[in-house]
Design a protein around this nucleic acid. Sequence first.
DNA 1: CATGAATGAGTTTTCATTCAT
DNA 2: CATGAATGAAAACTCATTCAT
Lengths: 205, 205, 205, 205
Amino acid sequence: MPKVVPEYKEKARRNIIETSAQVFLEKGYHKTKMDDIAERLGVSKGAIYQYFRSKEQLFFDVMDFFMHLRKDEVMSIILSEDPMRIASADFIGMKIERALQTQSFGLDLFLEAARNDLLRERMTEVLQEIYDEFIDLTTDLKERGVIKRDADVGVIWRGIVALRDGLILSILQGAKVTDVKATWVKITNMLLKEVFLERWMDEAK
Amino acid sequence: MPKVVPEYKEKARRNIIETSAQVFLEKGYHKTKMDDIAERLGVSKGAIYQYFRSKEQLFFDVMDFFMHLRKDEVMSIILSEDPMRIASADFIGMKIERALQTQSFGLDLFLEAARNDLLRERMTEVLQEIYDEFIDLTTDLKERGVIKRDADVGVIWRGIVALRDGLILSILQGAKVTDVKATWVKITNMLLKEVFLERWMDEAK
Amino acid sequence: MPKVVPEYKEKARRNIIETSAQVFLEKGYHKTKMDDIAERLGVSKGAIYQYFRSKEQLFFDVMDFFMHLRKDEVMSIILSEDPMRIASADFIGMKIERALQTQSFGLDLFLEAARNDLLRERMTEVLQEIYDEFIDLTTDLKERGVIKRDADVGVIWRGIVALRDGLILSILQGAKVTDVKATWVKITNMLLKEVFLERWMDEAK
Amino acid sequence: MPKVVPEYKEKARRNIIETSAQVFLEKGYHKTKMDDIAERLGVSKGAIYQYFRSKEQLFFDVMDFFMHLRKDEVMSIILSEDPMRIASADFIGMKIERALQTQSFGLDLFLEAARNDLLRERMTEVLQEIYDEFIDLTTDLKERGVIKRDADVGVIWRGIVALRDGLILSILQGAKVTDVKATWVKITNMLLKEVFLERWMDEAK
DNA sequence: CATGAATGAGTTTTCATTCAT
DNA sequence: CATGAATGAAAACTCATTCAT
């Protein structure tokens, strides 16, 4: 490992954040010990403190990382050629799998973050950013005749996101995977029909 | 001699559970200290240990209490004369208010519970109980012509519950109350229309 | 030990302060570990934290204790029937002995305290209290013809106190005990002659 | 080939000592981190370890440096044409200013050193050196009729040094600057009168 | 030689749990 | 039974020192 190059430090930071993200995801914030993270990284505890002032600060930066992941994820879906694929069993299936693996899908981390004023503000900010880009996009799509002019896309989109999170939560509470998948496919289809013009939907299929 | 002691003990247990539930709701599981609970109860820490082996056991029983609360709540809605009131801004408004007050609405407690094998099983059980009663009820309603014969009520119900949880989560992440209310009203209406016969819905209004 | 009586807690606090004072005196603030104090007390570390929020707070209270000790000491000398005994080899001898035992006589603790704004203020306060009582007393002594009307007792008193502290410091730096004693006797005699009327000094002898 | 390397090394050592001395003075021994010193020097931590085995060894050498400073200071005063200037408000004023700036005037460093056997011995040694030179000088001055033949110059000198240190300490404990200056001027004048012949003192003015 | 990232032993602090009163 | 002081096993964080680059 080249330690003298200037980029090294930034790379190391990045590495710590991504590894910590994994561990936080698996064990939750409170059950994750700095020792756990250090062990996973294969370094000593002290090394982490060279990059992050405290566990709280590390969590802060991990959450920032998660938010950007989420944003990128949402954007990539919206901007994809086939937004209808959201309404597939596969789409939710992937989420479910990750939820079952990590026992949380990060929902508890977001809830933990919601208890912190600074992080809550940051979350609101990112949410707004996503929403703004989303609205720009849909305005364009309305003009191009892809989605209905009178559709309240904000409502539909918020509904889809909430449905996803709520269903993930139900999975964690023991709901059956098949039930959850069926629910997702049925309801997202209903919601998307409210938004997309018939003609376009047929083509998408 | 009347053996009042066992009854007293049960009452005391109950009291501890309900008070602990409050505190867990407010502060989350990990941030709640046995001291906090004892203080809220107005008793000494030692007293709690007379009724519960450990903090974990207490949490276990508190979660059991919560699950039954949830079940009762769901049942009372389903059995009410006017199931359509679910699809009102007021209904979700109440939830939102509580979420904002407690910073969690208990979602984090359920997630914490999901990490515990025993509790997760228990949750699945209760969920199934609710579902079974729900199916009984809807079979009856189909026969009485209140809801459509071909409606997949399971999907709709799961969707509504997931939507509620997901929207609460979005509130905690900083979404605007008005947006969330609008989303709830719009989508639950869509979902309920899928289930109830037109005629009945008009009457309900 | 009766633990339920209300006075117990105050007694325990007192005990911790006095024992900590000893240990701080012997090892200095930074080299004293909470473990050291706990061990000397014969209790666990945790017990100390039931009475003091932090090591810093404990130090604060220990310094308060020291200041009152100092005040009482000064007062008892001033109010004694024979203030001239200050100017004796025995008087400084006692201080020297304690300084050699504790390697500091607490001077380093006062210096440590001087770095803390709150403690410095508190020290100034106590100093002023001592000074005020001192002035009251000397005004009375002037009227009763014990000390000279034109004597600047403030200067003399400050000089004596400074001399004591400075000589203690020199002892810690390796000065010879006999030299220090001789210095003390000679100079304090000079200073007191400036203040007391001849007649009275003869009597005192 | 000129062997400049060893000279360079000595210069570097010297530089580290002087800079460390500053930092130790400002923050005290325990609160000074090797990082602080390295940063002030503008070099890396590792570089310091090329010249000093450990923080303790560095402190040792810094104290040696301080002792020589003190010795030089004392000697320059004694050897100056006008020893009476010691008894001026300006003289103590300078010390006070530095004490207030550094919050210690190094007293805590000397106390810290006093706890170390090796350093205490070293201090005693230097003290003795100063004292010996001092006695040589005063013997000469007695013969030249500058100071009284029967004066106990050792006592007076020790008194003055102790007074200085004691007053500095009182400043750090919150004593008023004007009070301290007045005390210094008054008492040093008294002490010097005991030593110098009248005639000489008049001239000095 | 210089660098500064990494180490790891130590230190403060917390808190569920116990147990003498 | 109830109390709450004491316990002790963590856990976060610090920093002098080392060593690969």
